[in-house]
Design a protein around this nucleic acid. Structure first.
Lengths: 199, 199
DNA sequence: GTTATTTTTTGAACGATGTTCATTTTTTTG
DNA sequence: CAAAAAAATGAACATCGTTCAAAAAATAAC
């Protein structure tokens, strides 16, 4: 009976992934320990290194999944309205919502640094691009005449501005105030940038 | 001859500080090692813990100095123009300039996380406020009618947006492109927010 | 089905790192 | 100069991620 090995191999990989994801979600990236993950997954310490290259690899897999989950949520915003400005506002507000309800997983995406000074693998950089794709398509609808280079700069700026507001807002834990202050700020800056770009 | 002890004590503290600051500036926060710092400062490993509480303490002292240096640069922007909008643009462009020319020290301010989950000491949080003070005074000149609460929100949003653009821009190492793309983006978003707030 | 081969799993051991503390050295005091 | 106080030292400890020789398990060969 061949294929059994491959099955067990994948099962271990999955258990390690789920253990790491659960640990990050519960306690944050900074308290993730190889020994805890392998203990949760029911394997020996060294088993982690037969399933993943190292801790960086495992963390990047979890972060990539987080980016995909975020992408799924943003997908809804793309379908929610036919007006580009409203779609962009929807994207921003959903981004804030995702950051709030998945704070530790979301923080891990931006807090993680590769050990030594190793490069981020190409497959992960591809996952990152999903974030910008949604913004790009709406912004392109809004300004069909804009060339690709200028558009990609604008996309990055718009994302960076919204991300900055969400990141600092959540770190300082300013949530729940009248009709949600942070959401108002996010919406305001998006409408501002959209209209500013049109002028 | 009294006071000699206090003098030597302060001298060691200074040497450790300068060693840590130089190491962070050269190699980045992530490769800062207690043994390297004490070796540079010419004392034993344990000496660090007679001068500072722990590594967190030492790092926060360096980061506080970085914030003061940044504050000094921003001070120039406040005096450069009497027009609030131009002052805010000056603040943003100087912030970008500082981040570029002091990338590792500047990154350390935002990358550092306290060990375990200890709180950031009050004296350090006070240093942080200097960042917002300059923005607040210019924004207040621009809109004297705005109440304090709304103003402080706007200040935080403006800072967060600019910081996000600078942080992502520098991380992706997109520098030196035609007439400085990032600077253009920073200037554009500040003018947009200023005019948007006036409407 | 039994043995040999290949693969996987194991966990002790290693190196790196921040921190502590008994001992030694230095400085101040009487 | 001798006694007391303070500071400096660096070996030892705890906690990490990572490695790898040995044991266990799975597959292949006959």
């Amino acid at each position: 009976m061949t294929g059994r090995r491959e099955l067990q191999r994948q099962a271990l990989k999955d258990r390690l992934f789920e253990a790491a994801e659960a640990r990050i979600a519960r306690d944050g990236l900074s308290s993730l320990r190889a020994r805890d993950v392998t203990s949760d997954a029911g394997c020996a310490l060294g088993g982690l290194y037969s399933a993943y290259e190292d801790m960086d690899d495992l963390i990047l897999r979890v972060n990539a999944a987080t980016l995909r989950h975020l992408g799924d949520l943003l997908e809804q915003a793309t379908q929610a309205s036919s007006d580009p400005e409203e779609r962009l506002v929807g994207l921003g507000l959903r981004y804030l919502e995702f950051a709030r309800t998945n704070m530790n997983l979301w923080s891990a995406v931006f807090d993680h640094r590769m050990q030594h000074d190793r490069d981020i693998p190409d497959w992960y950089n591809e996952e990152q691009k999903v974030l910008f794709a949604h913004i790009g398509s709406s912004l392109s609808d809004l300004q069909p005449a804009m060339d690709t280079a200028s558009l990609s700069i604008r996309v990055r700026t718009l994302f960076a501005a919204v991300h900055g507001i969400v990141a600092i807002g959540l770190r300082e834990k300013i949530i729940g105030l009248p009709s949600d202050i942070i959401a108002n700020e996010v919406e305001a800056i998006i409408r501002l940038m959209v209209r500013g770009a049109q002028a």
